[in-house]
C-alpha cells in the first residue's frame, strides 16, 4: 500500500507539472508584452519543470536518481530567475518598451 501511495503522489505531481508548463506557454502567447510574458515563463515554467523533476524523484525509488532529480530541481529554481532577469535587463536597455497598458515606469522617469 505504501508503494502504491508513492506512485499516486508521483503521478499527480507529474500531471500538475505538465499542466503548469502548458499554462506557462499559453501565457507566453496570450500576454501583451515581453515583461508580462516573462512572468508566465519564469514562474509557471520553473514550477512546472520543477514539479516534473520532483515527480521523477518520488517515482524512481532509487536514492541516487532521487538525489540527482532534487539537485536538478534546485538548479532549475536557481537558473530560471537569472535568465529571466538577464533577458529583461538586456531588452530594456536596448529599447524594448513595455506595452501601453503599463501604469508606472520608474526607470523611464529616473532617466529623464
Amino acid at each position: 500500500m505504501l508503494e502504491g501511495l508513492e506512485l499516486y503522489l508521483g503521478g499527480t505531481l507529474l500531471v500538475l507539472g505538465a499542466a503548469f508548463t502548458l499554462l506557462a506557454t499559453i501565457g507566453v502567447v496570450r500576454l501583451p508584452d515581453l515583461y508580462t510574458r516573462m512572468h508566465a515563463a519564469s514562474k509557471a515554467g520553473a514550477v512546472g519543470g520543477g514539479l516534473i523533476l520532483l515527480a521523477v524523484a518520488v517515482l524512481s525509488q532509487d536514492a541516487a536518481v532521487s538525489v540527482r532529480a532534487i539537485i536538478g530541481v534546485m538548479f532549475v529554481l536557481l537558473t530560471t530567475p537569472v535568465s529571466a532577469h538577464l533577458l529583461a535587463r538586456a531588452s530594456y536597455l536596448t529599447g524594448y518598451r513595455p506595452c501601453n497598458d503599463t501604469v508606472i515606469d520608474d526607470i523611464a522617469q529616473s532617466n529623464e
Binding site: L34, G45, A46, G48, G49, V76, L87, A90, S91
Partner: peptide, 16 residues
Amino acid sequence: SDRVLALDLLAVVAMG
C-alpha cells in the same frame, strides 16, 4: 527578445 524567451521556455518544456 520574445523569441529568446519562448526558446528558454521551450527548453524547460523539453526537459519536462
